[in-house]
Design a protein around this nucleic acid. Structure first.
Lengths: 231, 231, 231, 231
DNA sequence: CATGAATGAGAATTCATTCAT
DNA sequence: TATGAATGAATTCTCATTCAT
């Protein structure tokens, strides 16, 4: 009578993307423009109502096209979702792209400033298009197994990036053993800021207090602790 | 011979016959047991496949009962979900209950130990029943508006608890202005640990390193930073 | 493209009464008493909500017994319905039984008085137990094919009775050709009275006006017209 | 790039693209035709098996469309029923429309002829489409409370029409007190004719005998009795 | 005998997807 | 190419009926 096996008959939904051109073509044709309009519209409604509660009709209405048209650009709802995911990720990557800023730092303090820069950008991102982050952080993980993995992969990427950042901040004279952990912690530290922001809180004072605290944490807590051997 | 009451909603079973023998006796507590079995089964499948991808048939199969039986115990799928949510929350509350441990501390260091205690319990919780936390953290927020609010409320509660904890840790000589933020930060800090654990990582070394780092963060970063005025 | 055949796959519900003792046994055992309680309860709820919208639970609740008990007395819902129908018919037959009154009449006027007698009894019937007539007249015809036939048969019986009555009223010197039609017409004439009464109208003045008009119709219209050859 | 309107209930299709070619043009009137086909099919099966015993699948099969299609035209089963009701009422109203015939009458006898006209039309109606009247008279009253009220309202309308007719027939020198009752009586008188007809009886002789008798009833019984004061 | 817990067949309804135009 | 009408598989929920106690 105990709970039985949880596995399902129809286990794997079998990732089905039509292997059409998915990347970012240099020249946006008319069709490509339409694709992006649809993806953007889908992102809005997915974020507002959730993937499962959003019908293809909803997406078509939001995009201002017929439902049938969606199937000219995407093989099925799942395929469209994949593209929305990719779109969201690339938008965030662009927003967080530090290649301009992250030149070699003259001092650790300068480097620490990156935290504020990143934070400020994230706040701007949520103000502009809260759908983007809400989709990635709240909805995506709950859609299905595969997307959960991709979200996890995404998190890992940020992990790596942050670790590299901390390595540069810490300099070569530091024990790097727990820097990966530090990276994850900082992701966690960022979380509440996003939640705050996603809930519509735009209080500038709170935000700057938050960023200051986060910076202090990294400065004193992370980097200092990194110098102490883990017991 | 007059017409009796015909109203339907009067749920009173009118068991008023003068007869003694009442057929199958209602075994008290048995119904409650069955309810819990169903809730547990539902938690498993909701956590494994998500609320929307889980059909009532799935739940019934997992619980080892007929579909119709579910409706003897819960008004509808949503009602069942609510009970699953409550169940999950109370399980976690029990797991995190610190009333034994949180006696008055002789020293701040002793109090800091709470972080490790909480962390250890969370790890144990996920090892035992990963469905529980995955359901609350990953699935719930994406189900619908109302549940999102309830999750948010839950997070706020933890906020408050942590803030109170920090206040005790920091003592009265500290600026308390950003302690609420600190609470949120620590929630964030806990996140990655859960993710790590939910993904099935049971590496003890990594875990203890993580807890040590987290403790250090709170010790050096949070509490220390709390002494610095926010600009 | 045109509308297709209307016949159904599962055409006949196959009258299924368990051929247990159905008639009216002289001695009412305890079980028989219980049967009648259930039938009475079922009549109430069938009349109040309609057969299809009434569940066996509703009936059991109204009767103050468990659902399972219903199946100790009746094979299934349809069987119970049959008994309710029989019950209703016999109740009405009793209410309309004229064997006391319809002795040989000394004058046609005396005989005409029967119309008022019948009418008054019908009014009394609806006042006492409106469920009875409502069930027979409104609900029954719409339940299924078989019951429609039985209702029709019932109407025919009344037809015959009324025709016989009119024959006695008219005497032997009358063209009897359209007396059967006359019977049907009087059934129809009674209809509005029932409707009036079923809707709860108990206005005595209206009722007596109605009966007077009906009597006049039969006196002048029916009997007089019966003397004229139909063209 | 700003987020657009995400509200869902805004049914506006947002067909605003600047493009000209709009794909499959919406053929006006075709949808209306389909609606009527469905309503007609539903009337057939409702009449044959009753509302509650008719599934949406039955209707779809009868209409020769998929079940899903029904929901493109009607919100739900109840909505479809409402349209069937309206359809039936308007069909009957058309069949009974006396505006051509009911010119000013030179003599009461001429006016009396209306009864035969109405009767003949009703017979024709049932011969053509017995479902129509059976649905209204037998099924509708038993479906639910609301429809019962609508049927009652319908009957009242006929009441009024008939009363007005009788008033013209009787002339101004008559006591009008019981003319409303007379109207109801005539409705009742029509009932048996319908029943006869609905049962498939097409015997012309019986029909004309019936109409003659009914005319005689109104002539001698109703109108004559109208001249006598009600006690 | 009486009961009510358990059940699964069946009904209404939704929606991703197809395809004629 | 774009469209939206059509569709049926899948889902939630109801309820007549069975049967262990």
């Amino acid at each position: 009578m105990g709970t039985q096996d949880v596995t399902r008959q129809s286990s794997a939904p079998a990732r089905d993307r039509t292997k059409g051109p998915v990347g970012r073509p240099k020249v946006l044709g008319l069709g490509e423009k339409r694709r992006e309009e649809i993806v953007t519209a889908a992102l809005q409604v997915f974020s507002a109502h959730g993937f499962h509660r959003t019908s293809m009709s909803d997406i078509a209405r939001q995009a201002g096209v017929g439902q049938g048209t969606l199937y000219r650009y995407f093989a099925n709802k799942r395929d469209l979702l994949d593209h929305v995911f990719d779109h969201a990720v690339s938008q965030i990557a662009m927003a967080l792209d530090l290649s301009d800023e992250a030149g070699p730092f003259d001092s650790p303090d300068e480097a620490l400033g990156l935290i504020e820069i990143i934070g400020t950008r994230l706040f701007a991102l949520t103000d502009n298009d809260s759908a983007l982050l809400r989709f990635l952080t709240v909805e995506c993980g709950a859609i299905d197994e595969e997307l959960r993995h991709r979200v996890a992969g995404l998190a890992s990427s940020v992990d790596v990036l942050l670790t590299q950042l901390f390595e540069r901040l810490a300099g070569e004279d530091t024990e790097t053993a727990n820097l990966p952990l530090a990276g994850r912690l900082v992701i966690g530290v960022a979380g509440p800021a996003l939640v705050m922001s996603l809930r519509g809180n735009r209080d500038a004072a709170q935000r700057s207090a938050f960023l200051a605290t986060a910076t202090a944490i990294v400065d004193h807590g992370l980097l200092a602790s990194a110098e102490e051997p883990v017991p």
